[in-house]
Each structure stands twice: as structure tokens, then as C-alpha cells.
Design a protein around this nucleic acid. Structure first.
Lengths: 194, 194
DNA sequence: ACTCTAACGCAAGCGGACTTGCTTTTCGCG
DNA sequence: CGCGAAAAGCAAGTCCGCTTGCGTTAGAGT
């Protein structure tokens, strides 16, 4: 994303521009909010021409996505050795982030993004760097023998994480603080018995 | 939504206009797709002035939402008396609908919609008419004694439904045909034991 | 049948996302 | 060092969502 893979070919003030634009995007995202952010302002604040932004990112959505995803990169995955604890912590962190204005913005941008290659790349990046690593929580539990190896790590994580996303993007209710724990319990114990 | 509650006050070609616009929106949604749909075209095809649309629906998103939600209204909730069967059928139907262009459009519009009263109303309508009824599947199971009354119907339904939405709006992968059944099994049996 | 007003028709225009054609700058590489 | 190409600067313009300030019309209530 963000233009052709940090092309270091001829003419390379690329990096400088990219950083400046992304910084400006963040700053304006904070002050103006998602809807109030105009790429003309971003360009001015970044000391860059509007056209440069469009040529690199293609459209507003992709820029937003690129900027927002940068936040996600540094997410740490809990690893205490206890499945319930790890899952709960992870879901709680996610819920907390999504409750943030930036979190809302990310969800919004992600859902609104189109189907062009750049957007798809952004989605993959999001999923890969955030949720795929979270899958390790389940994988490790299986390796420890805490979980039967018949469970599908991906399905488990999706069932854990998606209800939180669901409330944020769909019903748009505040996420109940103990929701993560309840989801984990339901997931672990099942509902068929007591 | 869709203007002030079907106001039947003085001057009431309201209904006619509303129907015409919604019809036109559908038609163009099918031919042009979500992105290609321009409200100017809708107005022309509906034999209505653009301003009329904006005054009634406020913006493009709300119109889309209103039109799309109409499709959802007629959803039937399975009631065979068997929980697993009902849940699976429901999830399968949902997945099938979301795989549709119209389904994609709905998700898109729903996620992209703002926070104004109209949009919130649309979200509520969506959730109320579609998912709240689906909660009855769980409620009935509890009443039959098939499920302990300690389970939270809403949470169960969300855990069932949201992974499907999740893939559609977030990772945007095709939904595996047997995914619903696997979700239901996981939900019923839990993952902690075999 | 008359009135009164919300809803529609219409023209004009604004803002901001995106495009295009062209020039100028930067910097990797020979 | 200097050449060649990708990237940035710049100007002008298009398109479409959305707004505004009117005048016009339909139809519910009396």
C-alpha cells in the first residue's frame, strides 16, 4: 500500500513525502475528525501538492486506510499461558481500541473501502497484522494441549472478535465492558449444557 | 426513516414519490451497482426532482439504506422446533443474502452511514426487524428447555451472525458454505472439551 | 368548495474529491 | 558528472453530492 512498495528507484523524496502526508493526516484526523478531513488540507499541512497525494494513494479512502493501519501495527498479543486470560485480554484491548475515535475511523474506512487492489491490500494487511497474530493465542493453546486439535483457530478468533466489531460498525452501541469475558466463556463452555 | 414518518398531512403525493424513487433506486442499483448509482439518475428515472430526494432523505447514504432495508423486511425466521436446524438455516440464509450484490451493498451502506438520527434509525430498523426476530430462535429453545435459561439470547445470536458479517465487510472473502454449520456446532458444544 | 400548508418543481451555485496534460526537480546509475 | 526516469509541482477543469431560495401544486380539514 501507499504507492508501489516504497520504491527506492530514481527520484526518491518518496519517503519524506509519505511521512509528511501521513503525519498531517493523523493531525487533521484528530482535530477535524473523519468527515471533516479534506485532502486539500492534508496537502497544505504536509507541504505537498494535492496531486502528489492522489497519484500515490489514488483516493481518500486508501490514504485514510494507510494512515489508520499504521496505528494497528504495534499491537501486542497477550501470552500468559492461560487461554481464557489471553482471549479475554485480547478482546478487551480490541474493544477498547475500537471505542476510540481512531478505532471508529478505522472500522469506517475499512468497511467503506472499495474493491480495488490497494484497498484489498489494506484489508489483507489489517487482517494479517492484527488478527492472524491473534490466532496464535489459540494455536498455542492447542500445542499446550489445553484445546483439542479439532478446533479451527481461525474460526475461534473470528467468533471471539467479530461480535465486538459487529456492535461497533453495525448496531453502533457502546461495547459492554464485560462483553469480552462473556464471549470467551460462551466460546469455551458452549451453550448446550449448563 | 424516509422522511417524517409517512406524514399524511396536507400535500400527500409523498407515497407516490417515495415508491417511485425507491423503485428507481433498486433498478439502478442492479444495473449500475452501488458506486455507479447517481442520485441525479435516480431522480430522472423516478420522474422526480433531485431536490425532492434530498429533502426527504437528506443524503445518498440514507436513501440507499432506506431502499436496501426494504429487502430485509420480508425475512422469515425458521421455526422447526430444532435449535441446531433453526440456527444453521438462519445463518445459511444470511450468508446467502450477504453474498448477493444487494447484500454487499447493504453492508457497505450500513457501515458507511453516519451518526445522524436518520442513519441511526436505519440501523435500529435493520437490527430490530432482522436480528431481533432471529433472537426468537434462541428464546424458543430456552422456553422448550433445550437451552439453559442462563444463556443470553442476544449474545448467542450475535456470536452466530457476526462472523458471517465479519467476513463480508472486513476480510471480504467468500463465505464458506459450511461455515454456518461449523459456527453453530462450536457455539453449542464449546471448544474447551473435545 | 375554499383554504392553508407541506411537499414538490426548478434554477443556480458551492464544495470537495478526483483527473489530466504539462513542466520541473530529484537522485540512482553508468 | 551527467543522463534518464520516476516523482513532485502546478493549473485548470470535470463530476457529483448537496444546498438555497424561490415559485407552484396538491390535497387534508373545515
Amino acid at each position: 500500500m501507499g504507492g508501489p512498495e516504497v520504491k527506492r528507484r530514481p527520484g526518491g523524496r518518496s519517503a519524506r513525502v509519505r511521512a509528511a502526508v501521513l503525519d498531517a493526516t493523523f493531525a487533521l484526523l484528530r482535530s477535524r475528525g473523519l468527515e471533516g478531513l479534506k485532502i486539500a488540507e492534508v496537502a497544505e499541512r504536509a507541504g505537498v501538492h494535492e496531486t502528489s497525494i492522489y497519484r500515490r494513494w489514488g483516493n481518500r479512502e486508501n490514504l485514510l486506510l494507510d494512515a489508520l493501519l499504521e496505528v494497528t501495527e504495534g499491537l501486542r498479543v497477550p501470552d500468559t499461558g492461560d487461554l481464557r486470560e489471553d482471549l479475554t485480554a485480547y478482546a478487551r484491548d480490541l474493544a477498547a481500541f475500537l471505542a476510540t475515535p481512531l478505532g471508529h475511523a478505522l472500522e469506517h474506512a475499512l468497511a467503506a473501502a472499495g474493491d480495488d487492489p490497494d484497498a484489498q491490500r489494506a484489508r489483507d494487511r489489517y487482517w494479517d497484522t492484527r488478527s492472524a497474530r491473534s490466532r496464535q493465542i489459540v494455536t498455542r493453546a492447542i500445542e499446550r494441549g489445553d484445546l483439542p486439535d479439532t478446533v479451527d483457530p481461525r474460526l475461534v478468533i473470528e467468533m471471539l472478535v467479530s461480535p465486538v466489531h459487529f456492535r461497533v460498525v453495525l448496531t453502533r452501541e457502546p461495547v459492554d465492558p464485560d462483553m469480552p469475558a462473556r464471549i470467551v466463556d460462551t466460546l469455551l463452555g458452549g451453550i448446550a449444557r449448563g
